[in-house]
């Protein structure tokens, strides 16, 4: 069965990972701009990173038959310096029209400070002015519940937001319900130690159903697994869930969400 990994940081992964993912029937990846493990020293570093996500990574993926899409933004960990963040935000319009860009992401909160909120409001303003889809990072560990509730408060207060074109990502047991109940897509990230396991993701599907849920690896430069979505599929099969349900979560759902972007040009696989 083909699958999407709708949130993965391939810039931090090797070409061997692309090859392995392709062999395991990964068809499409979505790569949000994120924190590369260190704070960048200037806007030129972001500029080059955005070029990497829109020029180089699509080619590297295509060499293995994988369709590569990206999200442009400044992550919450580098959003504390509001002046610097404004300079990065000013770079975004040049990239948002590039052919593989789905929208603005991953954006959100990290330590839930006033400055992070100021930067986030600027990013949302840009997204609304350009009618872009948005992908939200929610904080890790003890900050997650607080940060997720704050993000939902911000979005609820903005009447311009079309909730069907927004994903609240890295949801866990205590944050997935409010994201779904308010009409957003909810991402579940399969990530060792700090996010969800394939087993807990399957549990959440059983509790909340498959509607508007995306499952991703968010694999990056840290301990993570680019085949995590496959492991989730395996767990669902072990529990005897039907193939149609698994396909809905790993293929139909991300396809529907990505189709909300004007730049999404999906090429379906040839079927026998």
């Amino acid at each position: 069965m083909y699958f999407f990994d709708p949130h993965i940081h391939m810039a931090a992964r090797t070409t061997d990972d692309f090859a392995t993912m392709a062999k395991m029937d990964c068809l499409v990846v979505g790569e949000p701009a994120f924190w590369m493990g260190y704070d960048r020293s200037g806007t030129n570093s972001f500029y080059d990173y955005f070029r990497q996500l829109t020029e180089w990574e699509p080619k590297r993926a295509a060499n293995h038959g994988i369709q590569h899409y990206a999200w442009m933004g400044i992550n919450a960990k580098e959003a504390e310096d509001v002046g610097f963040a404004r300079e990065v935000i000013a770079l975004l319009p040049e990239f948002l029209d590039r052919p593989n860009v789905l929208g603005i992401g991953e954006i959100g909160l990290h330590k839930c400070t006033k400055n992070e909120v100021t930067t986030l409001l600027g990013l949302i303003d840009l997204a609304m002015a350009r009618e872009e889809q948005m992908l939200f990072h929610t904080p890790h560990l003890e900050d997650k519940y607080l940060g997720t509730r704050m993000i939902l408060d911000i979005l609820r207060a903005d009447s311009r937001v079309d909730r069907s074109r927004v994903c609240i990502d890295h949801c866990e047991e205590h944050t997935i319900r409010p994201a779904l109940e308010e009409g957003y897509w909810a991402g579940i990230t399969l990530y060792p130690t700090t996010k969800a396991t394939p087993q807990r993701a399957a549990d959440m599907i059983e509790v909340y159903g498959p509607e508007r849920i995306l499952v991703n690896s968010s694999a990056d430069w840290g301990p993570s697994d680019p085949l995590a979505v496959r492991r989730f599929m395996h767990e669902m099969r072990r529990r005897r869930h039907p193939e149609s349900l698994i396909r809905r979560i790993v293929y139909d759902n991300p396809l529907e969400f990505f189709r909300g972007s004007r730049n999404f040009r999906f090429v379906p696989p040839e079927q026998d």
Partner: peptide, 14 residues
């Protein structure tokens, strides 16, 4: 909902 309640136990207050 043990997992949800455990998550809240380890969460900062909103």
């Amino acid at each position: 909902d043990r997992a949800q309640r455990l998550q809240r136990l380890f969460s900062l207050p909103y």
